[in-house]
Each structure stands twice: as C-alpha cells, then as structure tokens.
Amino acid sequence: MAEKQKMIKVYLTGELFEVPEGSTIMMALEYAGFQLKQGVGCREGYCGACATVYREKGDYKLKGGLACQTVVSEGMAITQIPSVPAEKPIYDLNDLTPDVGTFTKLFPSVFRCVSCNSCTKACPQDIEVMDYIQAIIRGDLAKAADISFDCIRCGLCAMRCPAEIVQYNNATLARRLYGKYLAKKSPELEKRLEEIKSGKYDKEIKELKEMPHDELSKIYYKREIKIS
C-alpha cells in the first residue's frame, strides 16, 4: 500500500479544511473542492492572477503570495484576492511626456505615498515597490521602470496601500514612458519593426495561426533560445 499522505489543517476563506501537506495554496483550494474560475491563470508563477493573502499560525504578519507558488503550512489562514479594483485611466502614450507632470495628471494618488513600505512587504516578486513609487515622485522614470521590471500585476501592493495608490498601474505607465521616450533606441528593433510592417513575416504568422495545437506546441518547445 502506498504511504499515506500526511494531511494538515488550513483555513480557506475562513473555513477549516484538511489538505495534503506540501500542497501549494492552489492545490489545497482545489483539493478542498473549490472550483477556480477566477484567481487562477498560468499556474507557474508568471501571470499574477492568483494573488492571495495569508497568515501563518503564530505569526502576526499578513503576507501576500501567489497561490500557485506558496506552499501551505499547518494552521495557515488563506484568502484569495481574485481581482483588485484598480484605478486605470485611459491614455494615449503619444500625447504624454515622460515627466512627473504626467503622473500628476493621470495618477495623482501616487503623491499620497507615506513611505510605509507596506507595498514592498506584500510583493510576491520581491520588488522594492515603495522605491519605484518614490522614483516616480521625483521624476526618475528610468529607475521606476528598472525596479518594477519583474512586476506581474497581481495587485497585492494596491490592496495593502494605506494611501490607496495603485502601484502597478503607475509602474506600467513608467515603463511605457521609458520605453517610448527615454530608452536608448535599438537599430535592430527599428529594422525588425520595418520588416514586420512591410509584411516580411505575414506568411509565417498566418501559418502559425492556422497550425493545429499539437503541432504548435511541438514547435514551441523545440524552439531555439539564444542567450548571448
């Protein structure tokens, strides 16, 4: 007989369940019978859809993590945050300037930051969120873009912020402004964009689009990745 799976007790949205030790929060939720329609995505820690807050037994700290990456522990209390209500202004990047005034216009709430660092503490990607918000406040968009690069927009920073800032949307704008106006132009990229515009790859893209899933998957995993 197979060795018996050790079970541990966890609280899922306030209710007690027994789940297998070593499960991720996501596995625990599904084991307990929750059908995940929201708050789930790639299951590999990339997409940021499964933001979760939890407390470990005996610890006062409220922690944030991705359900697909965080392993449950005995007595853990867990609540998923399937979506974060966020301030998201519509803008046309072509009309904007890469400076602090653009943020005063589109995201004035960023100036309410009190440097409490709650955002950084909540970030499952270990990004120094407060530092990029501060970089935005002092108009250093290159730095903000650099620090926030690994953001997967899970929204936990915004949920914890006492100043009600939506950090990740600020970061997205900072990276867009940086990419469009501040980053050093790459001649290779310009060339490739021209090629795309001129239709050089149209045939290839059409083929890929029409390809059956199995075949596409095969090509995908066989692709060459050059790391130079």
Binding site: C113, V114, S115, M130, D131, Q134, I137, R138
Partner: peptide
C-alpha cells in the same frame, strides 16, 4: 554634497 543613495519624499 553627497546625495543619499536611496531616499524617499519627506512628505
């Protein structure tokens, strides 16, 4: 003047 390597708005 040696600028603080990392600083945040005083408020």
């Amino acid at each position: 003047f040696i600028e603080l390597p990392r600083w945040n708005c005083c408020g």
